[in-house]
Each structure stands twice: as structure tokens, then as C-alpha cells.
């Protein structure tokens, strides 16, 4: 047996109980919130109403929580002494944790969808449950996009709490960036619809919403912008997977637990978000002040101190400058 198999098997066994607990919680939530109701008219079963919204919520939850659980052990310096001296290469270790979380996510979500199918069976006459397969596959893929991005973001951070903050920033950045870019330079109204799907959760939410209607035997139409953003996020997820493995293999262990200094972390995201929000111009001063306060709070979280560095202050000044210039140009 190869070292990867040995390690992956050991890791899978040691996280089995955790997976079982997660599955039990998710199935209970599904059981409680998944709604399939047959509506009677004149005493006769006439149509069925379904609400599957708990399924994408569970999937999104798993896609965020699983990477945290899988990678939390690598945010503890003591743990790393043991883990990284084991006879398993860093890449294989990264793969074992990535795959273990992914398998648990797929299994738990599949069980939830299966429970959904069982709940649908009494209303089968009014539903097109064959669309459940498309629903399952497309939402699952949407969930995997979030999972891949979460894994990438978490390896950028030196602590799990920093990872969670960065996940939030990563969720907002593409939307803010694209909307601001359009508002500042392109001015194409149609693009606002496209960029409205620029959240990592969009592919999952969009497909869940569309195919829920399909299961309810309603006609559906997949807009081009939904499809375009689905493909866009698939490409982002692939890049995130590559970034995850590269960062994991080259990561400096001694920085774990310290300030998250990686390039694709706070260093870039805080000014990028702040400047993007200021760029279109026309925002009022109160909002600009709130953006600057939010940036300052994020810098304090980043530095874990109210003593900001000169580079942080420069970025705050640049953001203020961008606001002033864009406001003047607007007027």
C-alpha cells in the first residue's frame, strides 16, 4: 500500500465519527425542513408543492465547514511537528485531506437528496422526480465549487479564524470588483445581471432554484448569464484547487498561528475591496466613511493590533484619494 493510501485510510477512519455526526445533523435538518405537500382540490389530490431549499443550504454549510474541519489541524504548530514529519509528502497529505472532506460532503449530501427523494415518492404523480438527478448533480457541482474555493482560502490563512474572515472577503470580492468596474468604466446595464451571479454560491443557488421548479413540473429556462457564470466559477474552482496544492506544498510552517501575510490574503483583499467600492464615484460621504472604518477594522483584525503598519495607512490614504478623485470627476 502506498503512503498516500495508508495515510488517507488512517485519516478517513479517524474522521468517520465526525462524518457520522455531521450526517445525522444534516439528515435531521432535512427531515425537519424538507417540505413535500400534496394539495387537494375538491377532495382530490390535484398538485404538489415542494420546498427543497434546505438542500442547497446544507450543501453550502458542508462546503464551508468541511474544509475548516479538514484543515484546522494544520493551523496548530504543535500538530504540524507531528503531521509534517510523517512519511507522507505534503502534496499527498493535502490531497488526502481535500479528498476526505470532499467524500464526506458528497456522501452526506447524497443521503440528504435520497431522503428528499423518499419524501417525494407519495407525490410522485404530480412531480417530475427524474429532474432530481439533474438537480443533484448540478447543485453538487455548485457545492464543490464553494468547497474548492474554501480550501484555497483556508490554506492562505495562518489561523482558522483568519481563514473564516478571508472566506467572507473572498465571497464579496468578485461581485464588488465586477459591479464597480462596470459602474466606473463599462456602464453596460445588461452586465449588472451577469455580475449579479458573481458570488461563489451563485452556481449552487441558481441551479437549486431552477431545478426545484423543474421537479415541480414547471417549465424552466436557463439564462445565458447563469450558464456563463457557472462556467466562470468552474474555472475559478479549478484554479483554486491548483492554488490549494501549491500553497500547501510551499507553506512556511513556522508562520502558522501568526499573522496571515500571504499575498492572496488580507494584503490584497482589503485595498482591492475598499478601492473597488470607491471607484464608481457618486457614493455619499457617510458611506465612504463607513467603508474606510470597515477597512480599518479589517486591518486591525489582520494585524491583531490597533497599531497599523505604514503600508496599511498608505492603503487607507489611497482609498480616500480614490473616493475624492472619483467624487470630483462625478460632479
Amino acid at each position: 500500500m502506498t503512503s498516500f493510501k495508508r495515510y488517507a485510510l488512517y485519516h478517513a477512519k479517524s474522521t468517520l465519527l465526525r462524518g457520522a455526526v455531521m450526517a445525522a445533523i444534516c439528515l435531521l435538518l432535512c427531515f425537519a425542513f424538507l417540505d413535500v405537500t400534496v394539495i387537494q382540490e375538491n377532495g382530490v389530490d390535484s398538485w404538489a408543492y415542494i420546498s427543497l431549499s434546505i438542500l442547497p443550504l446544507i450543501l453550502a454549510f458542508l462546503a464551508i465547514v468541511m474544509p475548516i474541519l479538514e484543515l484546522d489541524g494544520f493551523k496548530n504548530r504543535r500538530n504540524l511537528d507531528t503531521l509534517l514529519s510523517l512519511p507522507v509528502s505534503r502534496t499527498k497529505m493535502a490531497a488526502a485531506h481535500f479528498l476526505n472532506g470532499l467524500v464526506q460532503l458528497v456522501v452526506i449530501y447524497s443521503l440528504c437528496v435520497l431522503l428528499g427523494l423518499m419524501r417525494m415518492l407519495p407525490a410522485a404523480a404530480f412531480l417530475r422526480e427524474q429532474h432530481l438527478l439533474s438537480y443533484y448533480l448540478l447543485t453538487l457541482f455548485g457545492g464543490l465549487i464553494v468547497y474548492a474555493i474554501s480550501c484555497f482560502v483556508l490554506v492562505q490563512a495562518e489561523t482558522t479564524s483568519d481563514g473564516i474572515v478571508l472566506m467572507l472577503l473572498y465571497a464579496l470580492t468578485p461581485y464588488v470588483l465586477l459591479i464597480s468596474f462596470n459602474a466606473a468604466w463599462l456602464h453596460i446595464r445588461e452586465l449588472e445581471n451577469v455580475f449579479g451571479h458573481a458570488f461563489p454560491f451563485s452556481p449552487l443557488a441558481d441551479m437549486a432554484s431552477l431545478y426545484e421548479k423543474a421537479i415541480e413540473a414547471k417549465d424552466i429556462f436557463i439564462p445565458n448569464e447563469t450558464l456563463a457564470m457557472y462556467i466562470f466559477w468552474c474555472v475559478v474552482a479549478l484554479l483554486a484547487v491548483v492554488g490549494y496544492f501549491l500553497t500547501f506544498a510551499r507553506h512556511r510552517t513556522e508562520r502558522v498561528g501568526g499573522i496571515s501575510e500571504t499575498f492572496w490574503g488580507y494584503r490584497v483583499l482589503i485595498p482591492l475591496l475598499g478601492i473597488s467600492l470607491m471607484l464608481p464615484g457618486g457614493i455619499d460621504t457617510a458611506l465612504a466613511v463607513m467603508i474606510l472604518i470597515a477597512m480599518t477594522v479589517l486591518y486591525i483584525i489582520y494585524r491583531r493590533s490597533v497599531r497599523l503598519r505604514r503600508s496599511d495607512l498608505i492603503m487607507l490614504a489611497v482609498t480616500t484619494g480614490v473616493f475624492l478623485i472619483s467624487s470630483m470627476m462625478q460632479s
Binding site: S3, R78, P87
Partner: peptide, 18 residues
């Protein structure tokens, strides 16, 4: 020691094992 084969022969016991 970055090579897996090398680490098969190494055991490191840190001062404060996790």
C-alpha cells in the same frame, strides 16, 4: 527530508508533541 522515502526512515519527537 522533503522526500517521502527519506522521511520513512526519520522519526521526530518534538518537545511538546500534539
Amino acid at each position: 527530508p522533503a522526500e517521502e522515502k527519506t522521511r520513512e526512515g526519520i522519526f521526530f519527537l518534538p518537545d511538546d508533541p500534539y
